[in-house]
Amino acid sequence: MSALDHVDLELLAALADDPRATVVALADRLGLSRNTVQARMTRLDKAGVFLSYERAISSSALGFPLEAVLSVTVRQADLPRIAEALERVPEIVQAYGLSGQIDLLVHVACRDTQHLFDTDARILAIEGVERTETSLVMGEVIPYRVRPLLELADDDQ
Rank of each mutant, 00 (worst) to 15 (best):
E140D: 15
Y53I: 05
H107C: 05
L4W: 06
F50N: 06
D120W: 02
D5L: 03
L79Q: 07
D17F: 13
L105A: 08
Y53Q: 08
L4G: 10
S52F: 03
L70S: 01
S52Y: 04
A47G: 12
T113M: 06
G100E: 05
F117K: 02
E133L: 11
I126F: 07
S58D: 15
Y53S: 06
D156S: 08
R131H: 09
N35G: 13
I142L: 14
L86Q: 00
L149N: 13
D45M: 06
S135D: 10
A16D: 15
T134A: 00
Q38Y: 11
S52Q: 01
L62P: 12
D154P: 02
R20V: 14
I123A: 00
R147I: 14
H115T: 08
A153D: 06
E151G: 04
E91A: 04
E151W: 12
V141A: 10
A13Y: 15
A61S: 12
L150G: 02
E133K: 03
H115W: 07
L32Q: 01
R43Q: 02
S52R: 04
L62H: 04
L152D: 12
G128H: 02
D45S: 07
L105V: 07
E140S: 15
P19K: 05
L104Q: 00
L86V: 06
R145Y: 10
L26A: 09
R131G: 09
E67F: 04
T132Y: 00
Y53D: 11
S59Y: 03
Q76T: 12
M1I: 14
A85W: 14
V37C: 05
G139A: 14
Q76M: 13
V74I: 11
I142M: 13
L15H: 12
L62I: 13
A25T: 11
H6I: 15
S60A: 14
G97R: 01
D45A: 08
T73G: 01
E10R: 14
T42I: 06
L150M: 14
L15T: 10
V69T: 11
V108W: 08
R75S: 07
P19E: 14
G128P: 00
A125L: 09
A61P: 03
V24E: 13
I102L: 03
V108R: 01
L62S: 13
C110T: 09
A121D: 02
A109C: 11
D155N: 07
S60Y: 02
A153H: 02
L51Y: 06
Q76P: 11
E84D: 04
E54G: 04
Q76L: 13
I123Y: 04
L30N: 13
